[in-house]
Nucleic acid binder design. Structure first.
Lengths: 338, 338
DNA sequence: GACAGGTGTGGGAGCGCTCCCATAACATAT
DNA sequence: ATATGTTATGGGAGCGCTCCCACACCTGTC
């Protein structure tokens, strides 16, 4: 691997001049630039990123930290959309991405080390679970950061990107109410996640607005998995709901399967709606009414927010809540007319 | 952030001695070690990884490169299992992971740059598609590497990890033959992927072994997507197959949906089998017979192979082909005996 | 008493860059 | 003629480490 110094020698200029050429500084004569570039191309010279990072004091590497509580969610179709959006936005700005999936056991020390070893210029942290320790660690590290999922309680000033979970849930449940469904059940997400809290809040909002009292028997606990959605639906069926809103699509798909297994027809006997609009939902049987999250836009927004913080030192909006979109399909009797 | 020098000053020893303590060199007196460690803890000193990398000549960072052809596959449930296995194995050895999802347009120059900028000690490269240019780039970079997916033609000596695609396909098709199915169709994967080639080869092996001639009308082209599986099945149905082997589960699920839509009962009228054993297959309707790939073991194996190459400079087995496992469920009439 | 062979410690050089300051060369204004 | 810029270039210092060599100092051996 050739070094700056070598290029300098071979093109008989100084190290500094080569550096200027490579970094596209304007103060280089055309003649010199051409001479140096010729050697650079001939030797296929690439500046050493490590040396550059040390000298410049920044690495142009962003960390993507996924705490263990969220790692399970790695199966979620959220990541396949989110992560490429992040890497793509980074590439566009000449940044690289380092991926950290925390191990359950040594979560905090590990994250602590990653935050302080100097390899990262900034981090995007999944804080969908209420992982107080990690948020504190991140804040204490003095590293620029953006959270995915808001945490007003623990970090009111934190930069974050989130989606309108509450409003989305309200919308989809309101849609059910408008269609005349009365006993609307809910399969909730894990109670220690902010997004599940917001979604159940939206469910309650909608029922409240329509003057319906909330029947706690119609709220089943869930954990965002298909299997649990299945079980929860089996538990709910004897209580004769007319419709069910699952806190995510995976559980809604589980609910659909439970209905099928129990001979309950969807949407004739039961409406089922979810949240996320994962790709399978469009092709489920029947296709699932759900709420679309702009996963990729979240990735792009978080990355660009972080890069802006890095470059401007702050300024810009530090809280972004992206809108969701109601996607109406057959599982709530879409064909039956509003 | 404190530096080595500062720790040295505060504990009144030399820079070298602090370095020895931090790196757990044996040649330090107990007394000195304790003195230094006290200061280290008090100041919460963390060695700067960038400086260390520059001085030591290695970064302890591995790259995970996913070419654009494969990025689409990022939706595949393969990644959610593979990637955590890689990061986990890396963490266990004190390595970090940098993720590179190539953009379609500037694929090769980008990869070229990543390979040569000095940030990576080694790379794991998805070469499931026959991306000759990328493989050449990787080989030319002189960086230790492990491929995911073998490429005997282009890189006979390359270190790789793969699964027994051919044998797995043969097994599942043989299972259908044993159960008495005769007209067995195939929904193939993209012809430019080695794994799809191996799977169709396994399909032909099985038919050949049983003395069946291959009816090319019963082989439909596919692209590993659910939607295409649906369409391919619709095309195949008029040709009256008794069973269909899809080159992956996503397409098999599409095929199931096509059968459902066409009033074809599975498994009574049609057997459907897939490949991959994605999590949805266990809960599909009916549950899908398929071939399980050890995605996580591939990640672990690739990482450990790469780390071994880094540490020993070579030696060890450089070709690993992991076994697949036949998973029999109802979609091929498992209940019908044998 | 001279020499070998450990131990523990310090300091210099160097990894390959960036950044700042000095310097030259020339143009323009006074 | 001198002062004042402007532009192109070179060289030194330094980023925070590691690694090697030198130098004590302490055994133990013949």
């Amino acid at each position: 691997m050739p070094t700056l110094e070598e290029i300098a020698r071979l093109s008989s200029v100084s190290r500094s001049t080569v550096s200027r050429v490579v970094n596209e500084s304007p103060n280089v004569s055309e003649e010199t630039r051409a001479k140096v570039l010729a050697v650079v191309q001939q030797l296929d010279y690439q500046p050493n990123a490590v040396a550059r990072s040390l000298a410049a004091g920044c690495t142009r590497i962003l960390g993507l930290i996924v705490p263990s509580g969220v790692t399970a969610m790695f199966h979620d179709p959220f990541f396949p959309e989110f992560i490429p959006a992040v890497t793509s936005a980074c590439s566009a700005h000449g940044y690289s991405v380092m991926l950290w999936l925390a191990e359950p056991m040594d979560e905090e020390p590990m994250i602590r080390q990653v935050l302080r070893n100097g390899f990262l210029d900034g981090v995007i942290v999944f804080t969908i679970h209420l992982s107080a320790g990690i948020i504190a660690e991140v804040v204490a590290s003095n590293l620029p950061y953006v959270l995915i999922g808001q945490h007003c309680a623990q970090a009111p000033d934190a930069a974050y990107v989130d989606v309108e979970n509450r409003r989305g849930a309200r919308q989809v449940v309101t849609h059910l109410l408008r269609k005349g469904y009365r006993r609307i059940a809910h399969i909730a997400g894990p109670t220690d996640t902010v997004c599940a809290q917001h979604r159940i809040a939206g469910y309650r909002d909608a029922l409240g607005t329509w003057g319906r009292r909330i029947d706690e028997d119609l709220v089943a606990a869930g954990d965002f998995t298909e299997a649990r959605g299945y079980e929860a639906m089996k538990e709910l069926l004897p209580r004769r709901p007319e419709a069910v809103f699952a806190a995510n699509d995976m559980m809604a798909l589980g609910a659909l399967r439970a209905c099928r297994d129990s001979g309950v027809r969807v949407p004739e006997d039961m409406a089922v709606v979810g949240f996320d609009d994962i790709s399978l939902s469009a092709n489920s049987n029947p296709p699932l009414t759900t709420v679309r999250q702009p996963s990729d836009r979240m990735g792009t927004a978080a990355t660009e927010m972080l890069l802006a913080i890095l470059e401007t030192g702050d300024a810009i909006p530090r809280q972004i809540v992206l809108p969701t979109e109601l996607v109406i399909r057959q599982s709530c009797g879409a064909t039956a007319g509003l």
